[in-house]
Structure formats: C-alpha cells, structure tokens
C-alpha cells in the first residue's frame, strides 16, 4: 500500500519523520516521504501523482492547528482524493493540550485518524486496524 508522509508547514523537526519512514517501510508500505517543511498542497499533489491510499502527516512544532482548518477546503478542490485515508500525529497544539478536545477537532477538519502525542508504533497499529476495518481492497 502506498503512503505519502512528511512534516507539515514550516516545521523542521526531522527525527520522527525519519523514524516514520523506517517504520512504514518495515511494515511493508511503499513510502513517499516528502520530508520536513511540506505544504498541505504538496501532500495532496503527491497523493495524486503516486495514487497513494494513505496520507500521514506529522506536525511537531505546534502549527498544525493553522493548517488543519484548511484541509477540507483544499481537499475539496481535488477530484481524485475521495478515498484517501488521512492521518495526522505529533504535537497537535501549542503546549500540552488534551486529546479529548484535540481529536474531535481534527476529525472535524477532515482527518480519519488523529494521534496527539501518541507513540509512533501505537499510531501505526491504529492505522492498520483502521484500514482493515474500513477499506476492502
């Protein structure tokens, strides 16, 4: 399965991104890693060009909130992304925040899976389970 991943916005925290790349590969995904400093449009564009089923965004520096609001609007402009599974993780707010508020907010922004300060492997397990339950390929 193809996954597009990267770190959104002007965010240069690269460590999780490298680990993500390794873990996804180890779990058998075909990974398109756009790296740090990636804009929302580039994520969607990469999904179009690769035909990826999953978009996995990291945000570590607290700017996710700003980008999150634009997701639905921008995604609506694409005609071939209706089946794209969208996941976001990292530090999804400034400061610690709490998942009970954050998760529904980001789901409302259009994400299928939201992992605020969730460990990477736990998150990827959630993804696998979600794909098993929701997608019949």
């Amino acid at each position: 399965m193809k996954v597009v991943t990267g770190v959104i916005g002007n965010d240069i925290h690269v460590v999780a991104n490298r680990l993500m790349d390794l873990s996804l590969n180890a779990r058998g995904y075909e990974v398109f890693n756009l790296g740090v400093n990636t804009y929302l449009e580039e994520f969607f564009d990469a999904a179009v060009e690769t035909g990826a089923e999953i978009l996995l965004i990291s945000s570590l520096n607290g700017e996710a909130e700003g980008w999150g609001r634009e997701v639905k609007l921008l995604k609506a402009k694409y005609k071939s992304l209706d089946n794209l599974t969208m996941m976001i993780g990292g530090n999804l707010t400034v400061g610690s925040g709490n998942a009970e508020d954050i998760v529904p907010r980001f789901k409302n922004y259009g994400f299928d899976l939201v992992c605020h300060q969730v460990d990477l492997n736990t998150g990827l397990d959630m993804l696998e389970e979600y794909m098993r339950e929701n997608k019949h390929s």
Binding site: Y39, E41, E42, F44, D45, A46, V48, E49
Partner: peptide
C-alpha cells in the same frame, strides 16, 4: 503548453 496532474510535481 504543459498539461499535468499537479502543480507541485508534474
């Protein structure tokens, strides 16, 4: 004239 799929790549 270029016809492509996306602005960021093709």
């Amino acid at each position: 004239l270029i016809i492509g799929l996306t602005q960021s790549y093709s």
